[in-house]
Structure formats: C-alpha cells, structure tokens
Simulated assay, not measured.
Amino acid sequence: MELLLLSNSTTFGRKFLEHALEPISEILNGSNEVLFVPFALADHAGYTAEAAEALTPLGVTVIGAHVGDPVDLAQKAKAIFIGGGNSFRLLKELHGKELTRIIRDRVRGGVPYIGSSAGTNMACPTLRTTNDMPIVEPPTFGALNLVPFQINPHYVERSLDSSHMGETRSKRLEEFLEENDVPVVAVREGTWLRRSSGRLTLGGSEAGGVLFRRGSPPEELSQNADLSELLEAPARFDLREAYHLS
C-alpha cells in the first residue's frame, strides 16, 4: 500500500498543504488526478476548492467526492485524499455513503491514499484515538483499517508552566491502552507517516512523534524514524463488532 498520513493540513506561517507538497507529489508519482473527500467539513464545495488551489503547483486535478455518485467516483479514482475536520462526522458520512469498504479495497489494491488529520484517523482500525468532539454518532467506530495500529494527530504535551490541571493528551492515550492492547503513534504538527509497501517511516518536521504501547513508557520518535515493525503487529480489536460490514 501507498499511504501518506499527515498530522495536519496547515502549518503555522504556511498556506494550506504547503508544507506537504513534496511528499504529496511523491506518493502521486505522476498521477494528475485526485479524488478529494471533503465530508469532515460542512462546506464540501468550499473545502474541495481549497484543496484544488493548494495542489495547483503539482498540476493535479481535484475531483470532489460530493459531486455525483461518490461510490462511482471512488471506484474510478486514481488517488484518494480524505481531508481533515471532524472525525465523527467524516466516519458517519463514509459509512452512510457506503464508501468504507470501497476505499479500503481500492487502497489495498494499490491506489495511493492521502489523509490529513481526520483523514489520517480514518486509516486506523478504529476512531478511538481521535481528538474530536462527537458532534454526530457514526454507526460504528470501525474505520478503514489500512494500518494495524492507531494514530493520534496534532499531538501536543502540556506546557510545564501551564496552570491547567485537566487530563493531558498522553494521559488520555494511556487510558486507551488500558482498554486496548494496540500501539498508538502520536504525530506532532508538521509531521506525517509514509507507508510504501512494507516500510513505514515518520517524516516531516524535526518535532517527530511519540510511540505509546501498553506496558512500556512513551517512546520519543525522531524525524525519519523507521516504524516498519508496527506493520507486523495485528490489530487486537474485534473487527466483527467494530465494522458491522457485510
């Protein structure tokens, strides 16, 4: 599989997707057409137009999945890009429009997949490590299951001089591991995960990421870290319960 899983779409001081144009160009590998899935935001047309403008330097034509039959568009797509926004709304739309199985099969069959934020969450086995508010209720938390581990985009630690006493992001991820024996890769702003065939690497800014595993302390991940071993770990979710797919 060819995956590019971005932590975020916009990096401070740069335009939408500007920081990721090089890896996007790499994964597209000459393809001049991308199906953009805008369902994480309410303004589908506006979001697709923003993506189209951002990818103009690459000479890529962007087709919105909201225009026409999304199933037909997904079946014909040369590459698929699922944008960020609210992950609960996005997953509900993917299931409601019967896109989950089609996208999963196409990507497993070789179609390049780009995800950003919520779109990156969709590549996981389930939605359970998102940061979003559940503004809607999807029929299941089962996502695309393109990687056998979980991802937490936009990962941040609490500042040492902060007076905030609520739960930190790391605490929430540790709670996830109390209930689920599945690794979680937390990716900081400006970083991404790149899967090409059997190799998985952490790219982007020097901020890197953090690997959380049950029974082990959090492990700092540096830029260009090789995480290919995570592709061998089976996801330990009950997929029959998670997906409810025929």
Rank of each mutant, 00 (worst) to 15 (best):
A49R: 13
A49T: 02
A49Y: 00
E50Q: 11
A51K: 08
A51P: 05
A52W: 00
E53C: 08
A54H: 02
A54L: 10
T56I: 01
P57T: 07
L58T: 10
G59R: 05
G59W: 04
G59P: 04
V60C: 07
V62E: 02
V62H: 10
I63N: 08
G64W: 12
G64Y: 11
G64P: 13
H66G: 14
V67I: 14
V67A: 15
D69N: 15
D69P: 12
P70T: 12
P70D: 07
D72M: 15
D72S: 15
D72C: 13
L73W: 05
A74Y: 00
Q75R: 15
K76W: 10
K76R: 15
K76M: 15
K78E: 12
K78S: 12
A79L: 07
I80V: 15
I80S: 06
I80P: 04
I80Y: 06
F81C: 05
I82A: 09
I82L: 13
G83Y: 05
G83E: 11
G83H: 01
G84L: 06
G85C: 07
N86M: 13
N86L: 09
N86I: 06
N86F: 05
S87W: 00
S87T: 13
S87D: 01
F88R: 02
R89Y: 04
R89C: 03
L91V: 09
L91M: 02
K92L: 03
L94C: 04
L94N: 06
H95S: 11
H95D: 14
G96T: 09
G96Y: 08
K97Q: 15
E98C: 14
L99S: 05
L99M: 09
L99D: 03
T100C: 12
T100N: 11
T100G: 03
R101M: 10
I102K: 09
I102Y: 01
I102W: 07
I102H: 06
I103M: 13
R104H: 15
D105W: 05
D105P: 02
D105N: 13
V107C: 11
V107K: 10
R108L: 15
G109C: 12
G109A: 08
G110Y: 07
V111Y: 07
V111W: 03
I114W: 02
I114G: 00
G115L: 04
G115Y: 02
S116I: 13
S116E: 07
S116F: 11
A118K: 04
G119H: 02
T120C: 04
N121G: 01
N121C: 10
M122R: 03
M122F: 09
M122G: 04
A123W: 08
A123V: 09
A123D: 04
C124H: 00
P125Q: 04
T126C: 05
L127S: 07
L127R: 08
R128G: 03
R128M: 11
R128V: 03
